[in-house]
Design a protein around this nucleic acid. Sequence first.
RNA 1: CGAGAAGUAGCACAAUUUGGUAGUGCACUAGAUUUGGGAUCUAGGGGUCGCAGGUUCAAAUCCUGUCUUCUCGACCA
Length: 469
Amino acid sequence: MEVKDITNRDQDFAKWYTDVCKKADLVDYSSVKGSMIIRPLGYAIWEEMVHVLDQKFKETGHENVQMPMFIPESLLNVEKEHVEGFAPEVAWVTMGGKEKLEERMCVRPTSEVLFCEHFKKIIRSYRDLPKLYNQWCTIVRWEKTTRPFLRSREILWQEGHTMHATAEEAKAETLRMFNIYREFQEEYLAMPVITGKKTEKEKFAGAEETYTIEAMMYDGYALQNGTSHYFGQHFAKAFDIEFVDANNKIDTPYQTSWGCTTRMIGGLIMTHSDNNGLVLPPKIAPWKVIIIPIGEVAERLATLEENLKSHHITYKIDNSNKTPGFKFAEAEVKGYPIRIELGERDLRNDEVTLVRRDTLEKTKVKFNEILPKVEELMETMQKDMYDRAKIRRDSMIYEAHTYDELKDIAKNKSGFIKINWCGDMACEDKIKEDTTLKSRCLIEDEVPDEVCVVCGKKAQTKLYIGRQY
RNA sequence: CGAGAAGUAGCACAAUUUGGUAGUGCACUAGAUUUGGGAUCUAGGGGUCGCAGGUUCAAAUCCUGUCUUCUCGACCA
């Protein structure tokens, strides 16, 4: 197994990223552009994410369904803003075998219209509401530029679609799921995130409000890691979905949708990994421990395995005939949080060596203290990784008080810039044109304290802007 | 989608300029000796040179098209 030669992260970040993806055996390319093969380790990480999120969705009352993959053109066309937003990037199916289709169908780029068509059939009364549905599936968006995990044409994701009797309820749902994403990313992925509402310009095609989770990568670029949309009655009206309320009046339901994707794996890499390869937060690592036996240690290995199993700590053993040095390096590339070097020499003193992946710090512990020490190390590591990422992120958030200052920061620094903004799309466009920076999200817990940094008019809000993947 | 670069064994590359029947290192397989930071020896296996056309007695090499990857733009929840 070739595991050398990861490009230096500070020399060429883009190449470093693809090197880590490939050398850690997370993905491989396929013969179709932007359609990646997710290999066992990459998929195992996704399964961990699915496991945690799916449980959270179910705890909040959601049910999983599976919708069709194809959308007839006429169905996609029902909602105008939506189709305009997605038309440029949908893939079309025009043939069935040798027959040309009467009506072409697109491969779902997202499933709002499919859910709406179905909701229309199953919603009659307020007693049928809310409908809280989710599906795990793949979607297709014909992206021009593709990168593993960050931007692919075939996307593995989850999309929640819900219908509610009142606007308040739907808005609460939008925020509830948004908060689940935030908690998940902070708690499990150890990624500090910036959250808030998207501007009119950047919101989802057809949505009334879009809430976004934005993480800052090691190089200061933003990665949008999940969104939650409030649709109001927008789609419901377009699809003519109605229900009878408790007073026997006809009403139109309120809708939400929310999604996150395997892009989070890319975020994980670009937040935590280093020049030795992948670094995974213990809480999301599929295997918490890698055991590297050195010499004749079969008996102790069996005991250790039993102990790990009884504590439900997942592990792998490297029993290959490689030298220990090779195994150490490979364990680092693959990102196992804790490495246990189980060697004859240490065991003569009843000791083993533990190594934490994030700092590569080595600790010797007595054999019967392995379990508590592993648990302690994982906890510390999870916290340290979050703290380090947060300190780095905070050091890369700048404030621009004048337009010249904004342009200067945009040119010379990488990161997010906090500005006061009048709310006018023209100013947002001007920033993008002059600096290539786009708005990330509105800052809701801070009041504007200066004039708009672009036009000098009264500011309506504060705003984060930055470059994105 | 625009500009540029690349594609030869699992990986990294050589041979392409000047057309003549494909090579090196690592990896892989078997055996032996090894084992605490990327082992050693011996013996093996593996490539219709991204794909499709064309030129030629002859194409990895020249020409055309196409696909994929990378970089920079444009686009993009």
